[in-house]
């Protein structure tokens, strides 16, 4: 199908983009377009206007500092995937991005667009939640920095105003010796995941888990932190009992059924993904801690 008619704006500055959003009813921001254009073609959405922010080059780029990593909202997914410095600091980004769509969609798709689309099965919101990221927005009232937990308000509902634009994502990098993993199951490569599990861990030289973060995507209406699993791992030896406890407590997550299968099926898939991610991340953390 073809998109319905809409007015088209392509502002050259962020201020202009915010002003257009402020005075235009029912406008949508067009970033990489890899979800919005499909929804327009299928006539799932009927915006009266599109505000194309592809000329806002200042929203693109990756800045890596010891305390803080900042990725501009319009940074293309493919650029994030291939960035050598980011890979060095936080290799989980490459693992996650290899699962995002296909190379042709990652060439145009952006991190900000993915966060605002907020599909519960998509990798980048799950990763943002895992890393306790801050989502920076700009609007008529100025710049806001929204903790990711507040940004994710519900199914495909980012917590931003109609006249606000996401400008960047920021998070603190983990220690050089951290272990990471991002596993998901999808029916076909590049499809939205039935379940995904993202894990970050740090261990001391005795193998004790000193820090652990787990995020589960795909199974509920939003990506979720698995707090009970993090508690089970933190302070443990990272052995089979701790992993079993983390898998067991997945039953407490919000799980919906869909055409892939009922909640029991998705819980089972989530546990399998989490077992793979925990095993891989714990092994990597041990290896890097010994090397450090």
């Amino acid at each position: 199908m073809k998109p319905p008619p809409f007015a088209y704006f392509r502002p050259g500055t962020l201020d202009e983009a915010i002003a257009i959003l402020g005075r235009t009813e029912n406008a949508k921001v067009l970033a990489g377009g890899q979800s919005l254009m499909a929804m327009l073609n299928l006539r799932y959405v009927f915006p009266d206007a599109l505000v194309d922010i592809n000329d806002l080059f200042e929203l693109s780029g990756i800045e890596i500092a010891p305390e803080r990593i900042r990725i501009g909202a319009m940074t293309r997914q493919r650029r994030i995937e291939l960035d050598a410095e980011l890979y060095e600091a936080m290799p989980i980004f490459r693992d996650a991005l290899k699962l995002v769509g296909h190379r042709q969609t990652r060439n145009r798709g952006t991190i900000g667009g993915s966060l605002c689309h907020l599909d519960p099965a998509s990798e980048l919101p799950t990763l943002a939640l895992l890393l306790d990221a801050g989502i920076e927005t700009a609007g008529p009232a100025g710049v806001r920095r929204i903790p990711v937990g507040e940004f994710i308000t519900g199914y495909m509902m980012p917590g931003i105003g109609p006249d606000e634009i996401v400008t960047a994502i920021e998070f603190a990098p983990w220690s050089v010796a951290h272990g990471h993993a991002f596993h998901e199951f999808a029916r076909r490569h590049g499809d939205f995941a039935v379940a995904s599990a993202a894990v970050m861990v740090e261990r001391d030289r005795q193998g004790v888990v000193t820090r652990c973060a787990i995020a589960i995507g795909g199974i509920g209406s939003v990506p979720q932190r698995h707090g009970a699993g993090e508690t089970a791992l933190t302070g443990s030896d990272g052995g089979p009992d701790a992993i079993a406890a983390a898998l067991e407590s997945c039953a407490g997550l919000d799980i919906l059924g869909d055409f892939h299968g009922g909640p029991d099926y998705r819980l089972s898939v989530a546990r399998t993904m989490l077992r793979r991610s925990l095993t891989a991340a714990l092994a990597r953390a041990s290896e890097r801690t010994q090397q450090a």
């Binding site: 088209y8 254009m37 499909a38 073609n41 769509g101 042709q104 060439n107 145009r108």
Partner: peptide
């Protein structure tokens, strides 16, 4: 954006021409 038949190169990189205006 699923089938890939419309893939072209835009400024040197592959893109779905159905997902671009």
């Amino acid at each position: 954006g699923v089938c890939g038949a419309c893939t072209v190169l835009v400024d040197g990189v592959s893109a779905r021409s159905c997902l671009m205006l």
